[in-house]
Computed example of a mutant assay.
Amino acid sequence: TLPVVSSLLIVICVWLVWICNLGGKQKNKKNLKKVMSGTSSTSVELHDGNLKYPFISFKEIVLATNNFSNSNMLGHGGFGNVYKGTLEDGTKIAVKRLSKGSGQGVIEFRNEVILIAKLQHQNLVRLLGFCIHGDEKLLIYEYLPNKSLDAMLFDATRKSMLDWPMRFEIIKGVARGLLYLHQDSRLKIIHRDLKASNILLDAEMSPKISDFGMARIFGGNQQQEN
Rank of each mutant, 00 (worst) to 15 (best):
K195S: 11
R186Y: 10
K172F: 00
Y141L: 10
F168W: 08
K137V: 09
V11R: 00
D193R: 07
P207R: 08
P165K: 08
A175D: 02
K52G: 03
D193H: 03
T39V: 13
S99M: 12
C20A: 13
I12M: 03
Q104W: 06
D150P: 11
L46T: 10
L201N: 12
R216V: 01
K33C: 01
I170D: 01
K188Q: 14
K59A: 13
K30V: 09
I217Q: 14
V44D: 15
I114K: 07
D155R: 00
K172C: 05
I171K: 00
Q122V: 13
N146F: 07
E169N: 04
S185K: 02
A196C: 13
D48H: 10
L51A: 04
H47K: 15
E45C: 14
E225W: 09
G77E: 06
Q224T: 14
Q26C: 07
W15S: 15
E225P: 00
E136V: 10
T39I: 11
E225N: 07
I190Q: 01
T39M: 04
Q224P: 02
D135I: 07
K172I: 10
H121L: 09
K172S: 00
K33S: 14
K30R: 15
N123S: 09
V35C: 08
M214I: 12
I209A: 08
H191Q: 06
N72Q: 11
I190E: 05
K159G: 03
R216D: 01
V174D: 07
S40M: 07
E88I: 13
R158L: 13
V5Y: 02
S6N: 01
A175K: 07
L124C: 12
N21S: 12
F218E: 04
I171V: 13
Q104I: 03
I93P: 02
L181F: 03
I116R: 03
K30D: 06
L9S: 01
S185C: 04
N226D: 14
K52C: 05
L153G: 09
N146M: 11
K84Y: 15
L138K: 07
S197A: 15
L149W: 05
L63H: 11
G220E: 14
G49I: 11
F154Q: 01
V11A: 06
L128A: 12
L124Q: 10
Y141I: 13
M214R: 06
G213S: 09
S43Q: 12
L194T: 12
N123V: 08
A175H: 03
S6G: 01
N31M: 13
G173V: 02
F58E: 03
G77F: 05
S71R: 15
L139P: 07
V14F: 13
G24C: 06
L9G: 00
H182E: 02
A175Q: 10
I217S: 15
F68A: 03
K34L: 09
M214K: 04
K100C: 06
F154D: 04
C20L: 12
P3A: 00
S40W: 10
S148I: 00
K30T: 05
D202H: 05
R97P: 03
M161W: 02
I171A: 14
T1Y: 02
L127D: 02
L144I: 13
W18V: 15
